[in-house]
Design a protein around this nucleic acid. Structure first.
Length: 260
DNA sequence: ATGCCTGTGGCGCACAGA
C-alpha cells in the first residue's frame, strides 16, 4: 500500500498538480492538508475523474483536511474531528479505514509564536492527539500530515535562524515524542536516520534553492504495521515550479510511504 | 539549478503560514 501525505496549500489552486501526482505516483491513499476550501467547493469531480474518491473535512479559508483513495478501494468508517481538540471548529483531523488500515490526515496548528495563546493551544492539540494515537496504536494505523514540529535538530536547516523558535521547542518535541511512545515509528526517520528529509521550504528568498527547509510532514506508522514499511520518500519534484507546466507549487513537498 | 511568497475573501489589503 502506497500512502502520500501532501499539504497542498489550497486544493483549489493545487487541483491540477494534485491530479498529476495521482497519475504519476498512483498512490492507494492520499492524505491532504490545508485544503482552504468551503465544503461545497471541494473538487470531488476532478478527483473522481482521476480515479479516486475523497472524504473531506473542509472549513473554508483556513485549514481543511481530506483523505483520497483509489476508486477500486473503499473509504470506510470516516470520522471527522479529533475528540477533545482545543478548537473544535477548526478542520484539522479526519480518519478513514482503507484496506484494513486506519488512516489519519492531520494538520497540527502552527502555533505562530512561543508564549501566545495559539502556541498553548498547539500544545493541547498534541496532548489530545496523543490520546487518540494511543487508542489506535494496537492496530494497523498510519497518522500522517503536517505535524508542524521538527522532531530533532536534524530536521531543521538552522536552529539559529528559525522563526522565533516555534517547531523546535522542548514543549513541542516532548509532546511529539510522547505520541511516538504510544507505539509508532516516524517512517522517514526510521528508514533514513541521517538524511534531513525536509518537506517544507519558505516561498521567500529562494529558500528551496538554498536548502533552507524543515521536516515537518511526517508519517507515523503503528508498530503492528511497521514491519510492512518498505519505503519513504520526499517528492521534491512537486516542490519545483516546473514539474507540472502551468501550475504552481505548494510550499510543502509530498511525502510518500510504501507498505509492502 | 530547484530562483527571491502565496493563498483566501473579496476587490484593497488584512491575515495566516512555519
Amino acid at each position: 500500500m502506497r500512502i502520500v501525505s501532501y499539504n497542498v496549500n489550497s486544493v483549489t489552486t493545487r487541483a491540477t498538480r494534485l491530479v498529476a501526482l495521482l497519475e504519476d505516483l498512483r498512490p492507494d491513499v492520499v492524505c491532504i492538508q490545508e485544503t482552504k476550501v468551503a465544503p461545497a467547493a471541494f473538487p470531488h469531480l476532478e478527483i473522481q475523474a482521476a480515479g479516486y474518491v475523497a472524504a473531506d473535512l473542509s472549513g473554508g479559508r483556513w485549514a481543511g483536511v481530506a483523505i483520497l483513495a483509489r476508486s477500486d478501494l473503499r473509504l470506510e468508517d470516516v470520522t471527522v474531528g479529533l475528540p477533545g481538540q482545543p478548537d473544535p471548529e477548526e478542520a484539522r483531523w479526519i480518519e478513514a479505514t482503507v484496506d484494513g488500515v486506519r488512516v489519519v490526515s492531520v494538520y497540527v496548528p502552527n502555533g505562530r509564536e512561543v508564549g501566545t495563546d495559539t502556541f498553548a493551544s498547539k500544545l493541547v492539540f498534541f496532548d489530545v492527539m496523543r490520546a487518540r494515537a494511543a487508542a489506535l496504536a494496537d492496530r494497523p494505523a498510519v497518522i500522517t500530515g503536517d505535524m508542524n514540529v521538527c522532531p530533532t535538530d536534524l530536521d531543521v536547516w538552522s536552529v539559529a535562524d528559525i522563526h522565533g523558535a516555534t517547531h523546535v521547542t522542548p514543549d513541542e518535541r516532548s509532546r511529539f515524542q510522547a505520541i511516538l511512545a504510544e507505539g509508532y515509528v516516524d517512517a522517514f526517520r526510521h528508514l533514513y536516520p541521517l538524511e534531513p528529509g525536509f518537506t517544507w521550504w519558505d516561498y521567500r528568498a529562494g529558500n528551496f534553492h538554498k536548502g533552507f527547509g524543515l521536516r515537518i510532514d511526517l508519517a507515523l506508522v503503528s508498530l503492528p504495521l511497521a514491519p510492512r514499511l518498505s519505503g519513504a520518500r520526499v517528492e521534491r519534484a512537486y516542490r519545483k515550479p516546473t514539474t507540472v507546466p502551468g501550475t504552481k507549487s505548494s510550499d510543502h513537498a509530498p511525502l510518500t510511504i510504501d507498505l509492502g
